[in-house]
Design a protein around this nucleic acid. Structure first.
Lengths: 136, 136
DNA sequence: GCGATATATATCGGTAGCCGATATATACTG
DNA sequence: CAGTATATATCGGCTACCGATATATATCGC
């Protein structure tokens, strides 16, 4: 949509990495936890996101461990990554606020027997009276 | 990402419609204005979104006007649309909050000469000393 | 011992959705 | 008369997410 924003998946990966470095599978679990189970980042999505974020310089490979015979590849945020996440969080909060405010405005204007509908209409086919006012 | 969320474009269209019915081109301008010019919803994006939101029952065609020889097709939110937008705004606010909190946690833990790095590491190839601590 | 589940990595094909370009049409401004 | 603004709509291309699949080790229950 030609905004500065990142994708949702990227946002949640960065968020999961914001407090400490994590490995792929750990990110998957952390995203689910931090979103109260609402967001499920899929394995098929993860590695593409990780590659893109690395290419964009928002994360870097922190280290590789072998725990119980299984390889763990840890990623961490770069300064740029922190800045990008912070900016995105700001944008989301602003967007959420705007939506909330506008919903309130809509209720004031539309719900309680709309106040006459001002403004000089041109050639207008008005809303059928039975359907006027409020959301439907 | 298998969350309940809608796309960014859909979110901004619903937000633009939240206070009053608008027509396509009006939505385009309104989205740009309400986002302080940060988000530019493209024409090529709009109609697909409008169709999907209509199919999903989140918006409906309110009315059609002819203003100065030009057709205007007005859409408005349904009750379901208001609910969906409200829920999405809630999710975004929650996500933004989580990110902010975690960034703060990350700074506490990582920025000021990290406190020794607890935890018994297995076979570990540690971060090169010169790069340790903080984000890079 | 064996199958199921959890941990952990990675790839691939299909599809959904956004973008840029393009088309059409009227009104206004220079 | 050309350029810009308003207003609609479509289409091809590309990006990105999803589900399925593959591989490998450890653990747990039976």
């Amino acid at each position: 949509m030609t905004a500065k924003g990142m994708t949702r998946a990227a946002f949640f990966v960065l968020t999961a990495l914001a407090d400490q470095p994590r490995h792929g599978y750990g990110i998957l679990r952390e995203v689910e936890e931090l979103s109260d189970g609402e967001v499920q980042l899929r394995v098929g999505t993860l590695y593409g996101v990780l590659d893109r974020l690395t290419a964009d310089g928002l994360i870097v490979l922190d280290r590789e461990e072998v725990q119980q015979g299984r390889l763990r590849r840890y990623y961490r945020l770069t300064d740029e990554g922190v800045a990008a996440l912070d900016a995105e969080a700001e944008r989301m909060a602003a967007g959420a606020g705007a939506a909330k405010r506008r919903i309130a405005e809509g209720r004031r204007a539309g719900t309680p027997a709309r106040p006459a509908a001002e403004g000089p209409a041109g050639l207008e086919r008005p809303t059928p009276p039975g359907l006027a006012g409020g959301y439907a």
